[in-house]
Design a protein around this nucleic acid. Structure first.
Length: 402
DNA sequence: CGAGATTCATGTGAAGTATACCTTTAGGCTTAA
DNA sequence: AAGCCTAAAGGTATACTTCACATGAATCTCGTA
């Protein structure tokens, strides 16, 4: 056994394709961000007043995933902070919150709590009145003259769940502050997000707006080339592999993060199969693996009741007796499963909401249809590939101890 | 035959409930002067 | 008397339930041609 492990470790050390894998990881911030000079300059000039202690205009940024929004903003704020720490003053704070993270920042309360946490304070998980949390936030930053830049990544996700009054309160917060000032930077994936906001919020939050267009294939190639220089050992990555990678990502609305993930996973796969080079087939494999992992991760971390519902949906999908699945079918199946597994049965009302959430996650596709005399319901389609279904089923079976 | 009424199965919104957790407050106990 | 601990009181967020009303096209009904 030990020999076997030795062999694995040996080959791992010898056959290292990566020079520095971190460069390809999502949380890595590169020194240069190609093809985003314009946007970065814009962001910088909008946030720059903070250096003089002036109020920062609220900024709203649109763009699809992986178009460098987060990266550019972080780059600019990093530079800002560098300047500030050089000048030895500490009247600028930058808070970055990703509103999408489930269980961390998906309600008004949790977002606020998260903001306070990253400012160094602490707030209990639950139990406090929301306005008490607002007050705490105000107290924390208003003790001296300073600027706070609040970056809300993926606000659209949060606003969908919470109401937009949250943003309104935030924008109004400035009038409660005597010393400090806050500037809000909202980042959204959805281009139409602003349209469904309250006009008051729209006007105050959208003082400045910026659109990040998707990268095209050529720009993606540039990015990949740049990063792969430091990420991989020379010669393991051919030019044609890079273009294939870029092509994949360009198809996926120019998502650079996706492209980098592809490259990283492809590298890992190549390493694992003892390959000396990364080849095009690795990219293909990586593509399906990423898709799979992402979904499986979501499914695995879903609460129990959600998993039960998903299990019901999967069972029905397999069942040849149903060519179309309706909410009622799911509910019946769900009850069956609950009885079998001795789980509590929730009401149909709740299941309806759970189904809606799965729809949001893209695990299923649910369309409301009216079938005349047969009433109104949703037609539900499971959106998982065959192999994914199998893996997902394994996870569910394990988690629900069936 | 066609317009309007009916109907079904569930969508959807609002309000209420249970649970888990929080802060405040007051009482009781200990401690030290 | 001061300090500390504990339990009760009073409050909130969240996940869920209950109630009630909204939907929208297939189907039924009935007046009319």
């Amino acid at each position: 056994m030990a020999q076997k492990l030795d062999k694995i470790f040996d080959s791992f050390v010898e056959n290292n394709l990566f020079k520095d894998k971190r460069v390809l990881q999502t949380n890595y911030t590169p020194d240069t961000i190609p093809h985003r000079d314009n946007q970065i300059e814009n962001v910088a000039s909008i946030l720059a007043p903070a250096l003089r202690g002036d109020r920062v205009s609220n900024l709203f940024i649109y763009g699809k995933t992986g178009t460098g929004k987060t990266l550019s903003v972080q780059h600019v704020t990093n530079e800002l902070m560098k300047r500030v720490s050089d000048s030895k003053s500490d009247n600028l704070k930058v808070v970055y919150i990703n509103c999408k993270l489930k269980k961390i920042a998906d309600t008004e309360y949790r977002i606020l709590a998260e903001i306070i946490n990253s400012l160094g304070g602490s707030v209990p998980i639950t139990g406090l009145p929301t306005d008490a949390v607002y007050n705490k936030f105000v107290d924390m930053i208003d003790d001296k003259r300073q600027n706070v830049i609040l970056i809300l990544d993926e606000v659209d996700q949060a606003i969908k769940k919470i109401s937009d009054s949250f943003l309104y309160t935030l924008t109004r917060l400035n009038s409660d502050l005597k010393n400090a000032q806050i500037g809000i930077v909202g980042i959204s994936n959805s281009l139409t997000f602003m349209d469904c906001l309250d006009p008051r919020v729209r006007s105050s939050l959208g003082e400045e707006e910026l659109v990040f267009p998707p990268y095209n294939a050529l720009q993606l190639i540039d990015i990949l080339r740049e990063r792969s220089k430091t990420a991989f050992v020379d010669g393991v990555l051919g030019e044609e592999v890079i273009s294939k990678c870029a092509a994949y990502a360009a198809r996926e609305h120019g998502d650079a993060r996706r492209a980098l993930d592809l490259l990283r996973v492809a590298g890992e796969l190549a390493e694992r199969t003892q390959s000396k080079k990364i080849e095009e087939k690795h990219i293909d494999e990586a593509n399906s693996k990423i898709e799979k992992d992402k979904m499986l991760d979501i499914i695995e971390n879903e609460p129990r009741q959600f998993q039960l519902v998903l299990m019901a949906i999967m069972d029905l999908t397999e069942d040849k007796n149903f060519d179309k699945i309706y909410t009622g079918n799911i509910y019946n199946k769900y009850q069956e499963i609950c009885e079998k597994t001795k789980n509590e049965i929730l009401t149909q009302r709740r299941i309806s909401d759970i189904i809606a959430e799965f729809d949001m996650l893209g695990i299923i596709n649910a369309d409301v249809v009216s079938k005349g005399r047969q009433g109104r319901t949703r037609v539900i389609k499971l959106m998982l590939s065959e192999s994914l279904k199998k893996k997902a089923r394994e996870i569910l079976l394990g988690n629900l101890n069936i």
